[in-house]
Design a protein around this nucleic acid. Structure first.
Lengths: 144, 144
DNA sequence: ATACTAACTAACAACAAATGTCAGTTTACA
DNA sequence: TGTAAACTGACATTTGTTGTTAGTTAGTAT
């Protein structure tokens, strides 16, 4: 996602109104690397805007998704997560706490399907998920 | 998962009863490569055993999962899928129909996290999902 | 400044997936 | 054949998400 200021400009161009609710959500998502769930974003928005409704949050998130400024991500932890980083990248998922991290710099061009498998399947994207234990959930005092 | 016959033997060893319901589900899963959802398995079971309850199906699936004979798989299509293939392998997901296919023979040892990313994350498994269009959903007459 | 209308709120309903409850019944197997 | 395990069935619950509706607010163009 672009910066909150750029998003404001984009919305203006699209003829969408610049409301405090939308700006609040822009702010929460800007540079957010925690891959929050919709509900986490709602909770976060409540802090600065106690009157915001859950419905509005969902609506704005879907707007952003359709504008291509926000990716949705399902890593199997129960709920959808939103990722403002729309560049191609991959993820880590902690099997203890469910936290999700970004992993850039993987060249998936080298991850090829063997020709014998899935004949006729047209690959558009290759997604890699590293599952394991995150730094915080690792037993202390060990260096792996 | 092993064959239905082997599963029967395993259950016997564990002191679990060999019920027609369990055997029915063994049969459905045996050599099943469609990655069915719990509900698809339930529907399928109803055909040969109209009295089976949804609860039983869920219970047996979780039993099998705990015995390590059945993997659960969440590829972001809404519901859990079950995979009797417990060998390490990867998946294709069709973005049109949601169908899931197996992909064997990928060497994930070469898919390494760059050292600069996610310091301290202990990778246990590397999961690859190829997203795209399956053979059946591809427009006909084209050879990609 | 005003009017138009998009956007928002609020409370509730609905949905799907999964799981829990629990009383009563069946049944696999020792 | 007895008995504990397993199953049924109907219903409730939970979680995440979306839809509804009606009334209110407020951004923006004029």
């Amino acid at each position: 996602m672009r910066t909150a200021a750029e998003m404001t400009e984009l919305y203006r161009q699209k003829g969408l109104k610049i409301t405090p609710q939308r700006q609040c959500i822009f702010g929460i998502l800007e540079a957010n690397t925690t891959h929050p769930t919709a509900d986490a974003i709602y909770e976060s928005a409540l802090e600065t805007m106690p009157s915001i409704s859950r419905k509005t949050v969902y609506t704005v998130l879907h707007e952003l998704n359709e504008l291509g400024e926000l990716l949705t991500l399902d890593v199997g932890t129960g709920s959808l997560r939103f990722d403002p980083n729309v560049e191609r990248h991959h993820h880590t998922v902690c099997r203890k706490c469910g936290s999700v991290g970004d992993v850039r710099g993987i060249d998936t061009a080298r991850v090829r399907m063997p020709a014998s498998e899935q004949v006729g399947f047209e690959v558009e994207e290759t997604e890699v998920i590293f599952r394991g234990i995150c730094k915080l959930c690792r037993p202390k005092g060990r260096k792996s």
